[in-house]
Write a protein that binds this DNA or RNA. Sequence first.
DNA 1: TCTATTATATGAGTAGAACATATAGATGAG
DNA 2: CTCATCTATATGTTCTACTCATATAATAGA
Lengths: 134, 134
Amino acid sequence: MCNHHTGDTGHSCSCTPSGRMLGFIQPWLLLLLSEESAHGYELLDKLNQNEDTQGVDPGFLYRTLRQFEEDGLLRSSWDVEGRGPARRVYEITPDGIEYLHAWADHIRSTRERLGRLLDTHESRFKSQTTKERR
Amino acid sequence: MCNHHTGDTGHSCSCTPSGRMLGFIQPWLLLLLSEESAHGYELLDKLNQNEDTQGVDPGFLYRTLRQFEEDGLLRSSWDVEGRGPARRVYEITPDGIEYLHAWADHIRSTRERLGRLLDTHESRFKSQTTKERR
DNA sequence: TCTATTATATGAGTAGAACATATAGATGAG
DNA sequence: CTCATCTATATGTTCTACTCATATAATAGA
């Protein structure tokens, strides 16, 4: 268990060290790229502007993009214009769009399963306030 | 990416091989034990009766229970009565109850984050039917 | 007594993510 | 011009949660 919950130290739980759900960043990446093409650093910025997706490890991001390209979900090309070093610009493919929608379906069902867990929890402890339960 | 989504082979995604979300079983365990004390094998049965929690690996279950006990969330004693080998019966502690509620809070916020992702996805692709998007 | 069932437990391997660091071109300060 | 800094991409290593495989043992029944 992690210390999000009780303040204890050094345990393990369902959250990553950064408190984020596993596999949560990838669909956001595809979603951002479905809006407009972008390079890695740019995506890193955008993710950091969203509370839900802050603190992504750059190494993880770049590796994920390369993997997506290998899987045919993205295409890339070099942008040498503008300042600074060349940027690898990623563009989403039709397969990528399709995968994004399939991912959304999967996330929807995950969300429903979380709902069923929470409902069971709530009905188990109904008629008790948060204080009374403790 | 896994093949839940597109039928492709040998990729990776946010789901475990069994298609389950990481860290999803543990709160169910605490929830079941908050209803009544039980031993591992019994819990395994109960989890298998719930569509959302089927196919749990026994090794994982027993290790999780031991870890929870080490963390003070559960207490155990041997039940030598009845048939078959002795059963280690787990009982939830006050700390366990508290942890369960904290876990529920965390799951609620995870659920909300999934909702925000889905909302963004939906508003990006609104006015398009599933068929039109592909 | 041999096998099946119930029950708990552990060893080894895997995959995704985190952490740390490397590389390199462009830019600006002095 | 040269040194530091910023932008940008990339990779090596470690960590951890989970899976897969297997071990152990008591009891019950054929």
